[in-house]
């Protein structure tokens, strides 16, 4: 706790600097500091409580709540796409369930809250980001390339077929952040899980080992989420008469 109290000196330095420069954000920094303290402490106590619950049902319930929140957030990036919440929910759930399922089946992790909740959170968060990017892009592609889609519809193409090239391009683009991360990991950027373990005093090789598991896990979950999402994305843009919605 003394470390935490001492670290508030850094906030004081920041506030003093912005006040000297009269940037007018000193009050916001202080508010943000108090808010983040309360939020994170609340999460800490909540996790302590959850980790104490050994029953898997509670962990699954918590993960489901996280998926609902993530799906709702991803939907917000594609307001013009009807049914985005349902598509997000099914996609994120599939990516998360399949990845955690494989990890449990292969004995990579135990079915304990200290594994399932943080790893599940990482999977859900990353899948949400990738899906949001993909939704945003596919929505703008449909808007810009309406003619291309209608040209395919005019030849009797199904909505899924007509929109396929646009979805493929969008999904491909959404992989870019993850592929970039894999290129620079450990060289330019120390990833979160590894940094956390090093700060907690873990052996660096152990930290790297866990980080690699995390990366592989995220590759699989994002891929599954994106592909499931791509399968259903087209539906929201068309009506039953195979017409593009206005």
């Amino acid at each position: 706790m003394s470390q935490l109290i001492a670290s508030t000196v850094l906030i004081v330095i920041a506030v003093v600097l912005v006040e000297i420069k009269r940037l007018g954000v000193g009050r916001d920094i202080l508010k943000g500091t108090v808010r983040s303290f309360i939020q994170l402490m609340a999460v800490g106590f909540a996790l302590k409580f959850i980790f104490g619950l050994e029953k898997v049902q509670y962990q699954v319930l918590l993960l489901l709540v996280m998926v609902v929140v993530a799906a709702y957030t991803a939907r917000g990036r594609a307001k013009s796409m009807p049914g985005a919440f349902k598509v997000s929910f099914v996609s994120i759930l599939s990516g998360g369930a399949a990845t955690l399922g494989v990890m449990l089946a292969l004995g990579i992790i135990d079915a304990s809250p200290s594994y399932l909740i943080p790893l599940g959170g990482m999977i859900i968060g990353n899948s949400m980001n990738a899906l949001s990017l993909s939704f945003e892009r596919v929505s703008s592609e449909v808007k810009q390339r309406r003619g291309e889609v209608e040209a395919a519809l005019c030849l009797g193409a199904s909505p899924q077929k007509a929109i396929e090239p646009l979805v493929r391009r969008s999904v491909k683009a959404s992989f870019i952040p993850m592929l970039n991360l894999m290129k620079i990991v450990g060289i330019v950027q120390m990833p979160g899980a590894m940094t956390g373990m090093l700060l907690a005093g873990a052996d660096p090789v152990d930290a790297v080992r866990i980080q690699l598991v995390v990366i592989y896990m995220l590759v699989a979950s994002t891929t599954i989420t994106m592909l499931v999402g791509a399968t259903f994305t087209y539906r929201g843009f068309f009506n039953r008469a195979w017409q593009l919605r206005a």
Binding site: G147, E148, E150, A151, A152, L153, C154, L155, G156, P165, W242
Partner: peptide, 15 residues
């Protein structure tokens, strides 16, 4: 749509 073909104002060709 197979029986009633349509050519749009702009020729949108596929890659």
């Amino acid at each position: 749509r197979v029986e009633v073909g349509m050519v749009l104002q702009q020729p949108f060709l596929f890659e």
